[in-house]
Structure formats: structure tokens, C-alpha cells
């Protein structure tokens, strides 16, 4: 497991070519720039799958959502698969309100995300 410079996002590599980002706090306007920075950094590496594990994220606002939309677009251009997992119902609600739940690959667990 390698830690990035981020204070609230750890970066793990469970398998060759797969990177898992694990934010450990709410993602709002004060923290989404950090998430964006880590996503860009990891996207620049040769990974074929980037997983964002939201298990420890109790809350996300539209700035977090915008960051993930941007990452999804960059991933498509990079031929990287971006998968989001372990969303709690409150975080899931914002994806639904913004009607972006079908735009992302969202699965229930990290294991599912790895095997997808």
C-alpha cells in the first residue's frame, strides 16, 4: 500500500494495474480540490482500473460529484476504467438527484469493483 501526499485520501494498489482511492472524510468544496489532484495524479500512471472506495465518506456535495464527472471523462480518454464502490444511501442520493447514477460504474463492494 502506498500513501499519496493527500491528508484524507489513501492510495492502495491491490493488484497490478488497479489503484484504489480511499477518501476518509466528507467531500465538499473544501476537500474536492484534493480529490481532483489525487485523481489526476493516479490517472497519469498506467493503470487500467481506478476504483474510488467511498466506504468512509458520509457526505458528498456537487463539488465532489463534479470532480468525479471530470475524472470519468479523463478516464474514458485514458482508456482507464473508473469504478465507484461502497456508497452509503446519503451519498447515493446526490447521484440520483443529479441523475448521474447511470453515468458512473457503481458497485456495492470493493471486491465487485476489482472483479468488474
Amino acid at each position: 500500500m502506498a500513501n499519496s501526499q493527500s491528508t484524507f485520501i489513501s492510495v492502495e494498489q491491490p493488484e497490478e494495474g488497479i489503484v484504489v482511492l480511499v477518501p476518509s472524510a466528507d467531500i465538499d468544496m473544501s476537500r474536492s480540490p484534493e480529490l481532483r489532484s489525487v485523481l489526476r495524479q493516479e490517472m497519469g500512471r498506467s493503470v487500467h482500473k481506478l476504483i474510488v472506495d467511498l466506504d468512509s465518506v458520509e457526505y458528498m456535495d456537487s463539488s465532489g460529484l463534479a470532480t468525479l464527472v471530470e475524472a470519468m471523462r479523463n478516464a474514458s480518454g485514458n482508456k482507464t476504467k473508473l469504478v465507484i464502490c461502497n456508497m452509503n444511501p446519503k451519498v447515493s442520493a446526490i447521484f440520483e438527484i443529479a441523475r448521474l447514477d447511470s453515468f458512473f460504474s457503481i458497485v456495492g463492494s470493493r471486491e465487485e469493483a476489482i472483479s468488474l
Binding site: D28, M29, Y59, D61, S62, S63, K90, A93, I94, I97
Partner: peptide, 21 residues
Amino acid sequence: DDMDCAKIALAVDEALSNIIR
């Protein structure tokens, strides 16, 4: 209920973020 509380907090967060941004 808990879900509505979270959504109301989200609406406030979005309003404040828009003012700041």
C-alpha cells in the same frame, strides 16, 4: 427522517458553496 436531514443539509451546502464560488 435521516435522509431528508441529509438532503436539507446538502441544499444549504450547495447554496453556501454557490455564494463562495
